[in-house]
């Protein structure tokens, strides 16, 4: 039994095949357009109004929705559901447990993973969205539950719109695989 336990650490499969140059190019284009749109809105429109349209977890979402478009984790249900659900859980964790910030952080991430699993909305960047709600500093804390709408829901929706527009241009891509 012990031996089996350690044998499992050797790995059982090989790395999936590499992607072609056009796939790499389209991933770059999608990510560039998606992030530049939310960043532009954030820094040119919302700057100085105490609001933002971009959070760190969007960088991770970009990997999925522009770079791994077939992945179940990258589908609209997961993108929107995972971010919004995790944002709500993150804000709630902070508001209840802010006197023990380490605990609030851990509860936020662990609970958001569990809830995403339970609702079939698992989206890895959601974990970051929940964590940012706790450790994101004054600018995030002052938003309260608004954090779940701006930047999270609106920003993710913009990124989704760009994904729909860009990912369906090349013959070899289609997006999404499913909506609900």
């Amino acid at each position: 039994m012990i031996r089996n336990y350690f044998t499992k650490m050797k790995g059982a499969s090989k790395s999936p095949p590499p992607v072609g140059i056009s796939e790499i190019l389209w991933s770059w284009i999608g990510a560039f357009l998606g992030i530049s749109t939310v960043a532009l809105i954030s820094y040119r429109v919302l700057e100085g109004k105490g609001l933002t349209m971009i959070i760190g977890s969007f960088g991770a979402s970009a990997v999925l929705i522009y770079g791994a478009v077939k992945s179940p984790l990258a589908q609209p249900r997961n993108l929107l559901g995972g971010h919004v659900l995790s944002a709500l859980i993150g804000v709630t964790s902070y508001q209840i447990l802010h006197s023990h910030i380490w605990l609030a952080a851990a509860v936020a991430v662990a609970t958001s993973i569990a809830c995403m699993h339970g609702t079939k909305t698992l989206h890895p960047p959601g974990g970051a969205t929940a964590l940012i709600a706790v450790i994101g500093g004054k600018s995030v804390h002052s938003l309260g539950y608004l954090y779940a709408i701006i930047p999270t829901a609106v920003g993710a929706s913009i990124m989704l719109a760009i994904a729909l527009l860009v990912n369906n241009i090349p013959k070899t891509r289609r997006y999404p695989e499913f909506w609900l």
């Binding site: 499969s13 790395s15 999936p16 095949p17 056009s22 478009v69 077939k70």
Partner: peptide, 14 residues
């Protein structure tokens, strides 16, 4: 898996 262009989020073993 190579025949399917684009990144597949799954290992050959799966």
């Amino acid at each position: 898996m190579k025949d399917i262009r684009g990144y597949l989020d799954i290992t050959p073993a799966d």
